[in-house]
């Protein structure tokens, strides 16, 4: 697939976004100076391990974080409108209609005591002022579009009678119901089995293309974003360490963290018992992050300078490629032969 869309233009701009939480132990800087863009009709993969701040970033872009004890700075523009200065009431007009979200666990993200039909029709009635009858008709179409068999019958059922995959299809139908311009999918398949994950990712990609919608696909799995996004941003300890067009980041990986993450995943085309590359230690506490480059204490390439000075995001030779490292990786992390041996 080529991610090129005809419409083009910037849909989402995040400028120097920072989020900190006050905790009894001190201030946790969960997101630290993140800037990124999503082009209209394109998909951005946001990759990071647990605790990297990717979920907090997504929720702060959506302004869904609780107000108490959370301090957010920076700006978020959706279609040129600054979301950070909007009142909660103004945000409600954006949520669900222009900007919507799919959550990680379909077992907990649907209300267990409300019928599916009610949960799907709700946004339609809220944003489109549709009648009960019209919203029901559209809900059936939406459920059908996300691959739910016998949608009319499903409307009257409760979430507990559906499988995880079916429930995630329902939440996708809800998110798509008012034709949003941007969909945030936060680990939408982590809780699902691999064959179902594949189906759901296909569905998201297909809908994203068909609707020419922007999408942010948040995941811990580089495999999930490799073939389904146009751009990726890799997060570590609240910061972006590498970003750029997906093929470029995979083929010309510069950040040692991205590279190590790629090498530590067992690959299906490795011979059995291959030694996995290991990232020593574990992610730092965001309560008291290391000085300089946050990955330095775990990085095999780290030098003195790394723990003293935080490297800025530096442009690579390919357009749009940025990385945060003083001593970037040179060799392509993915050996090119591997792709040829895979096809029979």
């Amino acid at each position: 697939m080529d991610g090129q869309s005809q419409t083009g233009g910037t849909l989402l701009t995040v400028e120097d976004l920072a989020v900190s939480f006050s905790t009894p132990y001190g201030t946790v800087r969960a997101v630290d100076g993140v800037s990124l863009q999503v082009q209209r009709g394109r998909a951005l993969g946001l990759v990071g391990e647990s605790g990297s701040g990717k979920t907090v970033l997504a929720r702060s872009i959506m302004r869904l974080l609780p107000r108490r004890g959370v301090d957010t700075t920076g700006r978020v523009f959706l279609d040129g409108i600054d979301l950070t200065v909007r009142s909660p009431k103004q945000m409600r007009a954006v949520w669900g209609s222009r900007l919507s979200m799919v959550f990680q666990d379909p077992m907990t993200s649907l209300n267990p005591v409300l019928k599916i039909g009610q949960q799907v029709a709700e946004s339609l009635r809220q944003h489109r002022q549709m009648s009960r009858h019209d919203s029901r008709e559209l809900a059936i179409k939406l459920l059908d579009a996300v691959g739910i068999p016998e949608p009319a019958q499903i409307l009257g059922r409760y979430p507990h009678s559906l499988s995880g995959g079916m429930r995630q299809r329902v939440t996708i139908a809800i998110a798509l119901s008012c034709d949003p311009v941007l969909l945030m999918a936060d680990e939408p398949t982590t809780a699902l089995d691999v064959t179902v994950q594949d189906q759901i990712l296909d569905l998201l990609q297909e809908q994203q293309h068909a609707r020419d919608m922007g999408m942010v696909l948040i995941t811990h799995d580089l495999g999930v974003v490799a073939n389904r996004t146009d751009d990726i941003a890799v997060m570590y300890a609240g910061q972006i360490v590498e970003q750029g067009p997906t093929p470029v980041v995979f083929a010309h990986t510069k950040s040692p963290y991205t590279s190590a993450l790629l090498q530590s995943v067992p690959r299906i085309d490795n011979p059995p018992h291959s030694r996995l590359e290991v990232i020593r230690g574990r992610p730092p506490s965001l309560l008291n992050p290391p000085s300089g480059c946050r990955f330095a204490p775990r990085c095999l390439r780290a030098q003195e300078r790394c723990s003293a000075e935080l490297p800025p995001l530096t442009p690579g030779p390919e357009p749009g490629h940025l990385f945060r490292c003083w001593y970037p990786v040179d060799a392509p992390s993915v050996p090119l032969e591997s792709s040829t041996t895979r096809s029979a």
Binding site: V194, D198, G223, A226, N227, F250, R267, V334, S339, A344
Partner: peptide, 17 residues
């Protein structure tokens, strides 16, 4: 085969086998 097919491969240049 279905399971193998569904594994996400962290390599945009890899063809789904």
């Amino acid at each position: 085969v279905g399971l193998l097919q569904a594994i996400p491969v962290p390599d945009p240049s890899a063809r789904q086998p």
